[in-house]
Design a protein around this nucleic acid. Sequence first.
RNA 1: CUGGGUGUAGCGCAGUUUGGUUAGCGUGUUGGGUUUGGAACCCAAAGGUCGUAGGUUCAAACCCUACCACCCAGACCA
Length: 574
Amino acid sequence: MRASHFLIATLKETPADAEVVSHQLMLRAGLIRQLTSGLYTWLPLGLRVLHKVANIVREEMNQSGAQEILMPVVQPAELWQESGRWQQYGPELLRIEDRHQRPFCLGPTHEEVITDLVRNEMSSYKQLPANFYQIQTKFRDEIRPRFGIMRSREFIMKDAYSFHIDHNCLQETYDVMHQTYCNIFNRIQLDYRSVLADTGSIGGSGSHEFHVLASSGEDDIAFSDTSDYAANVELAEAITLDRRQPATQALAEIETPGQYTISHLSSFLNISPTQTVKTLIVLGEAEDEDQKQPLVALVIRGDHELNALKAEKLAGIASPLSFAPEERIEEELHCKIGSLGPKGLAINIYVDRSAAVLSDFVCGANKHNYHLTGVNWGRDVPEGEVVDIRNVVVGDPSPCGSGTLEIKCGIEVGHIFQLGTKYSDAMNATVLDENGKAKTMAMGCYGIGITRIIAAAIEQNYDDNGIIWPDAIAPFQIALIPINLHKSAAVNEQCEALYKEFQHQGYDVIYMDEAKARLGVMLADTELMGIPHRLIVGDRGLENGTIEYKGRRDTESQHITIDTIIPFVTTLFS
RNA sequence: CUGGGUGUAGCGCAGUUUGGUUAGCGUGUUGGGUUUGGAACCCAAAGGUCGUAGGUUCAAACCCUACCACCCAGACCA
């Protein structure tokens, strides 16, 4: 590509409304422009990257045996009513009507459409397993789009859906997809982790997320420092190896005026927050629809955080988890929120494992402005049911049994699920089995955020001068930069020859062929755009028979003799 | 949705407190000239419904009212 025929839309200054690095650099390098909140136009440079990522995903998906299809963005409401999600989905689902006032939606995902297709087209177990995928635009009316392309409303996703006669077959495809995803992220050269994940409202039995590690990530990932174990903090099991010690103190009630938080309380008493517990009151499940939801107490160690996802899975606790209103606590427990404790509570009590091994601890006295010290389970307060309801913290023992946990931020770029029969049941998607009986197919679904990968790759690869693309997804592999093009016939001739040769050999080259462009501008632009390899052709070098090479991450240039430049470039990409 | 912030030239901003002639600066753009190994210099020029609508006033970018858009935090979210 000649720069004279290519929109180089670089910006010298950082646009004011971009906060995270990838968003800033995507705007500055001229990859995207914002149309309105959460909607972006892909400029020529950005689209090149998009295509490279999509092609890698496509190649690996094809390699895995999946078949590419393309489904509509606009979907009829009937299908969503059939699966029940027309009601379940909130305002995130953008609903529209056609000229006949027939209801449609913009697809945030395609389970319904694919299930409808497969139930119509597939009739025998002999056709299974089958895995269909598409690379296509999705629309989710996010409450708050942010971080540019990272969480936009419209985005491009690779989504695949597999169909199986039984769970074993599903597991096999799931494992193949897990490996395929590893292949994809390896090819793009991202620092990523596959982590155990929550299946969320989509249900099913198994799920992994793929996270690119970056400080701007919105998810927290816990890892073992000595094994491969990795899990989303939402899901990571919190283990305690401590044993409860025998009681040594007597129970005492002390006045603690104004001490309503753990940090205030522990500095007031000059103790560690790890010697305290906090009691959180949440809503339970009502026995009848018209009955009030009962209150349930959750007790965790003072320095720990409640994990809502774990808590709402416990028997008798309402999902989604919600804290009890203060009025109900005061009314029914006769105590304000800063002085709660497990002592004498006439409601169900769940105690986190780490809180359950404490002895001689401090907790609220259920009496405004009073706390108890020297508290011991069983002797002073009911034992409660011991469960895992807290977030893991750095230094916790890894649940895999090896090493301790570290926590890093991750950007979710892929997610694979075993759906089971949730959609095939609802939509009656069956095939005949070996006995000629109709059998509901088991399903898996597998997503990759194509556009999000681009932002994630930048978050992981940039410096003060701009983006540093991994070779596999760079918009151009090589920048060819002439010096004094308008004056030097030798430079012109050499560049044209090299440009033709690179094209002939199939390299993506951006030839900075604008006659009057200044060197500094060309260097700054190609660095900002993140072109991984750069060749400079100037009279000075040509006189010595050399061309200058510099890799985007290199600190020094190399002078390569002209007749070895092609083999030299070949070795760069081998 | 709640809270905070911002809307003035393509981009980054000043001017608004205390209303007053022709709305500025940097950068970018166009034309001309001098330059040419890291965003160069000189000259000239184009480019503005001051977010929108209404109001106050002799006079509004500036004061008042309503609305809209975008950004940030939270909540929410396969």
